[in-house]
Structures are given as C-alpha cells and as structure tokens.
Design a protein around this nucleic acid. Structure first.
Length: 461
DNA sequence: CAGAATAAACAGC
DNA sequence: GCTGTTTATTCTG
C-alpha cells in the first residue's frame, strides 16, 4: 500500500478541490442567500454536492478552509447512517431502545434531530462547521468535530458573538461541557491560531469538571484529562484510545483507514512525531483491543476486487467515548492473562522499555504542569468563583435527575455498551436510581453486547 | 490493582 | 513490508 496517498492535512480536507461559490436560492429556506457549493471528497459519489450557507458566516475568509453549515436543514427524512451500517431511523424507537445511543449521539432534542435530512454519505469526511455557535444552536455533538474545526480566524464580530454566549447563564453552563470539549480537543498543531476557548468568556468551561454521568471515561482520571486544565498539553495527556477516538470523531463518517489515523496522529499529536514507529504499533494495538473500534471492509469504488479496511467507531463509542483498552479486551471481556513463570528476555525487555517510557511521560507531564501552574496563578481567584457556580449547577442537574416528575432522558441515561457499567464509586447517583436498572451483568461477544438481568433471565433493560 | 505504554511474536496478504 | 491480533512486561497513580 502506498502510504503516501493518505497524506492529506486534515485542515485542508474541509474544502474539496471542487469548491465553488455562487449566489443561489437556498432550497431549504427559499430565500436568496449567499451559498457556496462544493463537491464532496473522494469518497463521495460523483454528482453529490454540498450546500453551505454563508449567511451565517459573514466574515468567512477565502483562505480559511473552515466552512459554515446551514442551520436551516430540511426537515425531511430522519436518517442516521454510517458507511458501515444499515441506515438507522431515529423515529424507530425499537432501534434506539436497543442501544440507547443514537438519538443522544447527536442531539438533546427529544426526537433526536441531528443532521436530519442529510445522509452521512453526503457529508464530506471533514465536515467542518465554521462557527461554533452553530453547534451550540443546533445541539450538534461537539465530539464529532476534529481539531481542524477549531481553526477560526480573527474576526472581532465573531468573537464578540461568541463572547456574548457567555452571558446566557444557565443554558450556557448547561452546554459548558461542549465548550470544554472544544478546548480539550484543540490541536497542538494549531496553536498559532485563535481558538474558541481563547475567546470564550463563559465561566471558563475549560476549568469545569463535567458531571460524572457524562464523563466519557467514567473514571476520575479522565475527568482531569477532559477538563482540559491544560489544553495545550492534552495530547501528551490523552491515551491512545482517546486520541484514536478523537481522530475518528473528526470525520463525519467516524471511520478512517489506518494510514489516515497515522496521519491524524502526525498532524495532531506529539506521539505521531516520534522517531520510532512504536506509536504505530500502539495505535494498531489499541484499534485491535478496544471494542470501541470496529474493523470494516469497504469495496473501493470502481474496482470491486479491491477492498479497503476501515476502522469505525461503534455507536456507543460515538455517544459515550472510549474507555480503556486495557480494561476491555475484545471478545474476551475481562479475560485474565496468565503470567508465565519464565517470561522470555525479549518480553522482559519490552516491558521495561514501556515502563521507562511511561516514567518519562510522567516527568514530562509534571514539568508541563509546573510551568503552567506558574503562569496561571493570576486567575486562581476567578477559578474559585467558577467552581462554586459549577457546583450549584451540578446540584441542579442532579436534582432534576432524581426528580420523579422528570423521567431520565437519553442524555442522562447510562448507555448499555460493552464496556459494562461504570464503577459504582464513580457515580454520584446510582444507576438504579437514575434509570430503574436492575443489577446487570454483561458479556461482550463479537456480535455485540449480551446482558442478562438478575431475574427472569430477561434482558436487564 | 487498573490503566497505560511499549515491544514483540505471529499470521495473513 | 504492512496490517491486525495477541501476549507480555513494566511503570504509575
């Protein structure tokens, strides 16, 4: 395989070479708007075209490759499809009930309206909203955005518009995690650009700890990571599984071939710039071992004999994020590996190298933390106020969760995913209280998760 | 002890 | 040689 063929900078993917600009009536709004159209990327079928509403981004620069997506999506068929799955209809409650992920993947709207009216196959692989406020307004999942999203140019009006969102009060805080994730997903390669969080004056969401039920990892560690206290060094903080997850989330299809993942790492992480190829091995290891990633084959258009192997995010991973690869080994569940009494010297050596590297990583993180703590002392007083504000908000959330008049929403429901249930100590509210769940045991098989309840032998949900 | 990084053996193509 | 899977080891929190 020619690895070079995948060497595209993700920031450049947003605009296909077929980009054109025109004045045309919007088919969705029937009003005359300034529109840009462009053909899709290579994997789109020929003839498919994109419509971008520039009216929402009056200050788009020609050399800014970020795009605006119209908020006036046609409300037609509700199709959720990924290239590797049969289309899933949001309105089909039976489908959503099984996995419980789909509608909440994309939207907080009860009916789950993420990308209603457009099919994923029509979306460029680096679909990139230009204005983060669009995400805010349309409840799009920020997690679906890659680092390339955060390249925004310096435009005072836009910045003021963003800053204005900081005054939205509770609603703004409700969505603070989205902004938080924006900040933590910031690409280190884009440090020379303005970033959303650089200008967001919302009670600085990047310092907030997300509610536990929304913690993608479900563990305390990740709370530290996901709060993005140090947005610049997150790539050094995040484990491979999460980085891979981010890579796949950066494209609308949530799928990449291995070489694309490699390239994403080169472009967006420090790991990908290492001299050796150990990081590639680690990526492959994580892809293989983590149930969040599924290998699929897709025939290459034009040549039915050739197939490309793509790695796709599982539905639950799209919604919930990934969990540790170590804890969760495909097919074997929590298989315990038997240590051999006489490990080969080569294995010993490998393990030692891994340990040494882990220690170096830790020291590096310590240095970075120390440097940043020095530079941040001036804002600590502000942080204290933010923490109190956050605690108040979280209390409100938890009250709503436990209120009998407020049934748990999809958003707050723990998903049934093959990572099993999060540890009890990680939950401030027991799952049973939140969702009426019984004690559930699960086994993940190749065909998917299988759960049993503690009575009647019926599924536990 | 769980999680993470790392290396390497091995098989298939 | 690349890809994918699996096993093993060490170190950290």
């Amino acid at each position: 395989m020619n690895s070079g063929q995948y060497h595209r900078r993700p920031q450049m993917e947003s605009l296909h070479s077929g980009y054109q600009h025109s004045e045309s009536p919007s088919p969705s709004t029937r009003s005359t708007r300034q529109m840009a159209t462009f053909n899709g990327p290579s994997r789109m079928q020929s003839g498919q075209q994109y419509i971008v509403d520039l009216s929402t981004t009056p200050a788009m620069h020609p050399d800014d490759y970020s795009l605006a997506i119209s908020t006036a999506m046609p409300q037609s068929s509700a199709i959720w499809s990924t290239p590797n799955q049969a289309p899933m209809n949001f309105d089909d409650q039976t489908v959503n009930d099984y996995y419980g992920y789909s509608s909440a993947v994309a939207s907080n709207e009860p009916e789950g309206s993420f990308l209603r009216g457009i099919e994923f196959s029509e979306i460029p692989r680096s679909w990139t909203p230009y204005d983060p406020s669009i995400l805010y307004e349309s409840n799009l999942a920020v997690e679906s955005l890659g680092p390339s999203v955060y390249m925004i140019h310096h435009d005072d009006d836009d910045m003021h518009r963003l800053s204005d969102r900081s005054t939205l009060g509770f609603d703004a805080l409700e969505n603070s995690q989205r902004f938080s994730r924006l900040s933590i997903s910031r690409s280190p390669k884009l440090q020379n650009h303005s970033t959303i969080t650089d200008h967001l004056a919302i009670p600085n969401a990047s310092h907030f700890k997300p509610p536990p039920c929304e913690d993608s990892d479900g563990g305390g560690r990740s709370s530290r990571e996901m709060t993005a206290t140090d947005p610049d060094d997150h790539s050094a903080e995040e484990p491979y599984a999460k980085l891979i997850h981010r890579a796949l989330m950066s494209v609308p299809s949530h799928s990449m071939v291995l070489q694309e993942i490699y390239q994403w790492f080169r472009d967006n992480t420090m790991k990908g710039n290492a001299d050796n190829k150990g990081w590639m091995n680690s990526i492959r290891h994580n892809l293989s071992m983590n149930a969040a990633f599924k290998k699929t084959e897709r025939k290459i258009a034009g040549d039915e004999t050739k197939k490309s192997t793509e790695w796709v995010l599982e539905d639950f991973a799209i919604k919930d994020g990934v969990q540790s690869t170590t804890r969760y080994r495909k097919g074997t569940g929590a298989k315990k590996f038997v240590k051999s009494d006489n490990p080969t010297p080569s294995r010993q050596s490998s393990g030692r190298k891994g340990g040494i590297s882990a220690r170096q990583t830790k020291l590096q993180r310590q240095r970075i933390r120390e440097e940043r703590s020095d530079s941040r002392r001036g804002i600590q007083k502000h942080d204290t106020h933010q923490s109190q504000f956050l605690q108040h908000t979280l209390n409100q959330r938890m009250q709503r969760l436990s209120s009998p008049s407020t049934p748990p929403s999809h958003e707050n429901m723990p998903s049934m995913n093959p990572y099993f249930l999060p540890k009890a100590e990680q939950l401030e509210v027991p799952y049973e209280d939140m969702c009426g769940l019984e004690v559930v045991q699960g086994v993940y098989l190749d065909d998917g998760p299988v759960f049993t309840s503690n009575h009647d032998g019926l599924p536990g949900y």
